Simulated assay, not measured.
Amino acid sequence: MAHAVSSAARLEEAVAAVRARTDACPRVALVLGSGLGSFADTLEGATRIPYEDIPGMPVSGVAGHAGRLVIGRAEGVPCVAMQGRVHLYEGHDPGDVVFGLRLMMRLGAKVLVVTNAAGGANPALEPGDLMLIEDHLNMTGRTPLLGPNDEALGPRFPDMSEAYDPGLRRLARKVAGELGIPLRGGVYAGLLGPSYETPAEIRMLQRLGADAVGMSTVLETIAARHAGARVLGISCITNKGAGLSAQLLDHAEVQEVADRVRDRFVALLRGVLAALAKESG
């Protein structure tokens, strides 16, 4: 059985390939979900590297995920962005799902901003809402930490009591308030996918305390905390969960809503980065 934890040696080969193209040292890592990938195109002084050019980097086949690592600056902050991500439901090992995340940490990032498109399990959430992730439920049954621990990546038993950094959440709320962008808080449930949830599963998730549900983010957050990074997570609610509306779910709807909310999402993201620049300045 292949172990899920990526070897440090494999990561170093990927780091060397990126370093051959740029010596920039990013401070913030961005994982850009459905509808937000174009934000990476706005990074200043950017170096763009297709995933295919990075040894060991898995490539996504999902529509709307470009598949490039982009290194540049936004609001004066050195950033590295994953323009598209891979998912467990594509058949990837958990270690491959978080390989890009671990690569960004190895390049120097200490803060992760992870975004996603999610369904609303909380009936109060409407398509187009932005939700600050306060905690998560890992319902995938998988973890990127399975197998022997590589101490070069992090400790055997990382603490997850504050998986989503309280200071970053306060900062995001402050920025959202200044911009007049409504930002609800909630719990994100990460499921395996690729099928959308049944109405019974949505009712189960509600009882477990979930507000939003999706097919990403939880493994990346675990790997980031394993590496000692601070994590800020934001979901774009693209649809109501199964059974909460008469509408059937499809990926085209998810992308359409994510595209519609993009400008507001990007404004919040830029505001957070500008606040981080002041924080470090």
Rank of each mutant, 00 (worst) to 15 (best):
V231S: 11
K110V: 01
P58C: 11
E126W: 06
P166N: 06
H92C: 02
H136P: 04
V80G: 05
L132M: 09
M160W: 04
G91P: 05
S7L: 01
P78L: 13
M204T: 15
E12V: 03
G119T: 08
G67V: 02
H251P: 03
Q83S: 12
V31S: 07
D150M: 07
V62H: 03
N138C: 09
A172E: 04
G177P: 00
M204A: 15
T115W: 01
D23M: 11
E12G: 02
V59K: 06
V28L: 07
R169Y: 01
R170M: 09
R225W: 01
L183P: 03
D93R: 12
D165T: 12
P148Y: 01
A124I: 05
L153G: 03
V114E: 00
P155D: 11
A163E: 08
D129T: 10
P78V: 12
V187Q: 10
E256N: 08
I202M: 15
V59I: 09
S216I: 06
G147Q: 08
Q206T: 14
L269H: 07
T140M: 14
M104K: 00
L232W: 00
V98F: 01
D23Q: 15
L168G: 04
G186Y: 10
S6V: 08
A246C: 11
E162A: 14
H87Q: 10
H92T: 01
S38D: 14
G154Y: 09
I222D: 00
L88R: 08
L36N: 11
F157W: 15
A258C: 10
R73T: 12
G61R: 13
R142I: 03
F39M: 15
L132C: 03
L183T: 08
A66V: 10
M160P: 00
A172Y: 02
I234R: 11
A14W: 01
D53E: 14
A176E: 05
A24K: 10
G61Q: 05
T115D: 03
D23S: 15
V62C: 05
I237H: 03
S6N: 02
V111Q: 01
P94V: 02
I71S: 04
G84M: 06
F39E: 05
